[in-house]
Design a protein around this nucleic acid. Sequence first.
DNA 1: ACCAGTAATATC
DNA 2: ATATTACTGGTT
Length: 736
Amino acid sequence: LPSFNLFAEIVFPVPLKQVFTYGVSPALEGSIQPGMRCSVSFGRRQTVGLVTGLSRVAPNVPNLKSINSLMDIQPCLTPDLLKLGQWMADYYYCSVGEALFAMMPSGYRKNPKAFLGLKAEAQREAVESLLAQAGALRGVKWDNLKAGTVPVTARIKPLMEALKKSGLLELKLGEPGEMKSREKQTHETKQGPALHPQQQAALSAIEGALKEGGFKTFLLQGVTGSGKTEIYLRAIALVLEAGKQAIVLIPEIALTPQTVERFTSRFGDRVAVLHSRLGAGERVRQWESMATGDASVVVGARSALFAPAKNLGLIVVDEEHESSYKQDESPRYNARDAAIKRAQLVGGIAVLGSATPSLESLHNAKAGKYGLLLMPDRVNQKPLPKMRLVDLKEEWKTRGADRPILSLPLEEAIRETLAKGEQTLLFLNRRGFSTVALCLQCGEQLQCPSCSVPVTFHKSGGTKNEQTLLCHYCNWQGPLPEKCPSCKGGPIRLVGLGTERIEDEIAKKFPEARVARMDLDTTRRMGSHESILKKIMKKEVDILIGTQMVAKGHDFPGVTLVGVVGADTGLALPDFRSSERVFQLLVQVAGRAGRADKEGIIYLQTFNPEHPSIKAASVYDFQAFGEQELALRKMLFYPPFSRLGLLVYRSKVEKNASQAAEQTARFLRAQKGSGVEIFGPAPAAIAKLRGQYRFQILMKSEKPGPIRQVLALLDSKIETPKGVLRVVDLDPQSLL
DNA sequence: ACCAGTAATATC
DNA sequence: ATATTACTGGTT
């Protein structure tokens, strides 16, 4: 029986809240460090674990295993990331392993990191001794190796290249493309434009905090066109001058070449870029470039927050209100909030930017937790484009049975815009042709067979790009029946608008116009996104119809008219954030009009012209919206005045899910004095999803701590029944 | 007797 | 989460 004098605490990407202890063989004692990956046998599998700690004290476990090999020469996660992982596990109620592995590029989970293929077994000894000298084989066990391969545990690119050239071996597999060096862009670092006074003031505040040193968060609230990005660029420049690194987070949807170009043109090849369309190898390369110092700035979506910057000074979170910063699978972290935590851990600056900040951030700024930087004016000194409300109730009244999709004022505006040779953007946040298929005889709505949602009719789209019924939640597809399947006779009527329907309407009304549609269905194919954008830029499109994805992050210089076909869309959702979302989206989409020198105008078609959120949005009155919404949230004890935790119980058997939720709610309610209010259980807004029934419990508390405590108590007393899956979501982004 | 499909079980 | 084993229930 082997005995060890050093033991490693190791975590895995599994939802188990235990830390596992392995023996460290004498050969590894000198090199092992927290933050290194290792290859170990775990349960019945051989897998990758992460060392989180070391101890001289022998654990009291019956059959201790030992580490097979180390996969890193240097820790792949920095000390602050290790701490951030602990915080995430604690805060979001997940395992440390889930949190830490979520930080790494997916290629890092695979075991082993790379193989070198020997050309001849006889050369093994020579190659091994070379690699051993380089420290690349430290602690590698040879038992379960395929003949002719050598597992390489570390980043030793130059050596591997040299070996390959020598003809001794060839690179066989591992992380694809890793051997390519990071592409170097040629660049001229451009000087930024001169700052106007509001920008100057904002930058000075950030500069002051940088000089002072230490942790600080700013909320940069600036209207569309106020030059927020220039502030980011200047702040980054200051950080780089100080020899530090910066992280810039952008919502995935805005991570277009246009946006990235602003950073690369200023900082050239010091910029690493991380986005969802990168391959595994390229992602690893970009990620590692922050660790080696090849890059000093990383621009990316949510997970770019975890770039292994060794000398981090600044984190920018652009469009901080965006819900896409919240990960919708475990670990369910919000990258904006985790960014603030990371800035705190490294004693750096966090800058949250938005034209329409979240109420959480607004509240924190008002409370003095964040420095508030306001930029209410546009750089070009022009007023924001006017928004005009069109009351669809009136429109429908006067035009009778017509029930027009486009109101007369909007139609007229489109005609004028076409005549002037300018571009129109029509926005509706629903894809497909119709939103509901209804039986005219029995009134039945056609539903998805495995979800409790109506199916959308698509004229094109689907897998074969043919007409189909589609479930937007599980992607189920089926034919449109001639007769109602429920009453076996009634004719089916397609009700409700989607972007395809608008496309039809425009073709009828403006047959001469060149039309493009941009939504999930037209951009699914690689590169089609870019090709549509290019057409718009080249003025080969007169009218662009789109969903959310046209509302965010794009700069369409030729667009002077924006028509919001249904400004109320989303307002009726049973979610406490629905009016916040609508407000933000309307202001956002309005920002697409008249960005260049020509003036723009926005038409908002609505059935609720008196709705406070729509009214406030129509005059860009964030102040009014914020105050009215904060008052409401305070009254209802919703965030930012409370913290929420959502428990979802899912099961294929409805009773199992509902009973598990009932039992939990009973237990939670019985914990008097816990400081947590319990609501529910209730069926989720989408009661059945992908064949699973869902029941929810909502927890409210003044501070986040009590929710975690009561959950821990729950877990120590009650086990989730078999066949039921429980999801815990802290600071949920949506209660649906 | 046998196989696929599903539930149960443990993970240093 | 995941790999493996145990257990169904229905067929050859």
